[in-house]
Design a protein around this nucleic acid. Sequence first.
DNA 1: GCAGTGCTGTACCCGTGGTGCAGTTTTGAA
DNA 2: TTCAAAACTGCACCACGGGTACAGCACTGC
Lengths: 210, 210
Amino acid sequence: MTTFLKPRSVATNRDKLLTAAELAIVEKGFAATSIEELITEVGITKSGFFYHFRDKSEMVKALLERHLAEEAVWFEGLFARASTLDDDPLHAFLIFLRLLQEDMERLTDVHPGCIVTACVFQERLFDRSIHELAADSLLGWRRQFHAKFKEIAAVYPPRIDVDLEDLSDMLTVVTDGGIILSKTIRDKGVLARQVGLYRKFVKSIFAPRH
Amino acid sequence: MTTFLKPRSVATNRDKLLTAAELAIVEKGFAATSIEELITEVGITKSGFFYHFRDKSEMVKALLERHLAEEAVWFEGLFARASTLDDDPLHAFLIFLRLLQEDMERLTDVHPGCIVTACVFQERLFDRSIHELAADSLLGWRRQFHAKFKEIAAVYPPRIDVDLEDLSDMLTVVTDGGIILSKTIRDKGVLARQVGLYRKFVKSIFAPRH
DNA sequence: GCAGTGCTGTACCCGTGGTGCAGTTTTGAA
DNA sequence: TTCAAAACTGCACCACGGGTACAGCACTGC
């Protein structure tokens, strides 16, 4: 779950603030990111900041909303490309995972860490609505992936007994966990390799024995 | 990676500070945890705090060290129990995973979130040594699990082609990712179920077809 | 010509992390 | 019992960052 392919051409100062905040938060965390540095980067004053956002927490909410929307577009694009390449639900999903993996390999540097995670680990600094935003997003992915897996399972009876909802969750789990591991040991390849491993798992569950 | 089974009977004030900090950080994050609240809980003054720790960051370092040590003891205990129950490397590892899953099911509430993760997402608030501590710990687990998998693979040739180091990483990935997902959607069961799913993956890779 | 949008400037409050240091109590070994 | 080190207390003080309050200005589009 990361920044990926953002045009952001005719950005307003509000947008610029969000972008600056995103970069800073991903790089050094929310608490270490001061309003001061954001406004100097954008070139406005403190009053300008508080004109756009009631407080720092509201800015994070806006940031999260924008991020989740972009992420949804990203995933949807991958899904679309995958299903044009193959009609079969299993093959399409495996292609989707491959495309996801490739995108992750291409990520800059040690990759942007997940904003969602950063938010969840700051809980009390924000209000409930931010947490709910993150939760809804993750539950949304569960729903979407679960639907795909049900489709797949209808055609390819699973070779081992797994809960398809858990399997759906596992993709977000592997992604978020992969980001953490990548960030911690400073090896950007880990994330993509973990997605690749997840792909092999999915394949081994559904793909018929050759 | 969590708090589990801590005696901490004759705690010094320093230990009490660490414990209070651990609870607070896990519950609401590092930034939202003030020195003030820790010292009032323990019953000492601000001067007392700075007698024990140069600054907040040093406290986190001490906390992390204590946590990693306890975690190591926990895992070692599970490994030991598992290998007394079965000599076979694969079966022992699967038992270990089952025990791990059971422990995770038993975790209080929505479970303690991983301190390591909390630290990684605050990067710039701490010094490099804290990051290295976390990285060394995760690389240590990779080494240990990798050794086990090599042992297993020697007896049970893998049925699908997976990188054993990636497979080792996947356990920490699933754990950390599982904690995040659990925390986000407020469902404590997710973590254990994800470990269970990982177990099925390991089993399906190595276990001979029935 | 006028209202809204998007700001600036100034002044000010408070919580929190952190410093410095002198003095006091507690503890444990000789 | 003594004495030194460990474990604090108390107080004064600073800087930074988030946040408030509010008056005023500049630009845009109708």
